[in-house]
Structures are given as C-alpha cells and as structure tokens.
Amino acid sequence: MEKDPYNVVVTGVGGQGNVLASQLIGAILVDKGLKVTIGETYGASQRGGSVMSHVRISEKRQYGPLIPPRCADLVLALEPSEAARVLGEFGNPATISVVNTRPVYPVDVISGDLTYPDIDRLFEKIKSLSAKTYFLPATDRALELGSPILANIILMGAAAGAGLLPITEDDLAKAITERVSAAKVDINRTAFRVGADLVNDVPAG
C-alpha cells in the first residue's frame, strides 16, 4: 500500500452487509501478510441505524480499531447520505469515495419528520469532499442478480477494479469459501465482476 496505514471506511445502514464486506477485505489482506485492524459499530445494526466499519491496513503494525478524524483514505459507502456522514468526520482533500447511489430513507424521513437531502446536491457534496468519486447503482445491479445484499460485494469489486484495494476475484472466492459458504462463491464472483466492470464504465467525478 502506498500509504501506511491505509484507512478504509465501509459505511451503510444496518442490514446492508457492510460488516461482512469489511471482514472479507480484512481476511484477504491478512492472508497477503498485512496487519489489519477493523473496528465495527453494531449491536443494534439490523435496526435501521448507521453502521460503519473502520478498516486499517498496515505493513508495520497493528493499529487501533478507530480511524482518527479526517484520516480516511477510501470510503466505500453503501448509502449516499452515509457517505456524507463519514466524509464529514473522516474525509480529507485526498479521500477517494466509492458510493452506491440508492438512498435508504431513515424512518424519520419516511414519516415526514425529517427530509432527505436533494439527491443531486448530495452527490455534489460528496464530490466536493472527495479527491475522486465513483457513483455506482450497486443496489439496482444487485437486485438484477437476485438479492440487494450483493451491493456490498459489487462495491468491493468496484474498489478493486479502480485499483483502490489490492484484492482479486480469486481472493474473494477463497475468503467466501473459508468464511461464508462454498455454495455462495459463484454469485459473489459475479457480483465482484459487476462492480469491477461498472467502475470502468462510470467516469470518476
């Protein structure tokens, strides 16, 4: 990794699979000989809250489980307003963002007590806080593959395809076999490729 530690935030809403995504990234990189620390915030994560995983990658040492403010190098966001939330606290002018474009509305937005930001202005805000941004319709493509939960792997594939994470489809297949289920390898391989292809199709902003 060019930067050490390389700090990745995987963010989203409870139930979107960000904890698994960060675990797979970590498992793959530890197998490659790196020191990885992942801090996760969950407990009530299935229940609508913001969920964020901090993945800290180093060749030298085991870093603490939380990224200091303004020190994220890469943000993988399964939900756009969560990207803004993470960039607001952990972003810096060199941060690169890979963002799923589909909003998950908070219950207070659904009820009308709060409003969700205008989507175009939200995308502009994310771009303005990132050195480079990739917006991807990951959930829409995941639904085409049969399950919205695959958006997390699509995002991983996109980050790998853009050269932001040193992981390959075969690495993912091995980690899925070892840590999830051999039966899930094919669909996750497909999702990873969809992400890698998508990132090459969309212009980075």
């Binding site: 609508g48 803004a84 960039l87 607001g88 972003g91 908070p106 207070d108 709060l114 969700y116 930001p117």
Partner: peptide
C-alpha cells in the same frame, strides 16, 4: 474551506437515523 464544507455535510446532508424495528 474543507473543514467548513465537512461541517455543512454533517449539518445539512446527513438525516439522523433513529433505530427502528426491522
């Protein structure tokens, strides 16, 4: 400028997610 824009992101682009039943 970045710090100011980040503050704006937190104030105006991040609706609070209260916990809810699934």
């Amino acid at each position: 400028d970045y710090a100011e824009s980040a503050r704006d992101a937190l104030e105006n682009f991040t609706p609070f997610r209260s916990l809810a039943f699934c």
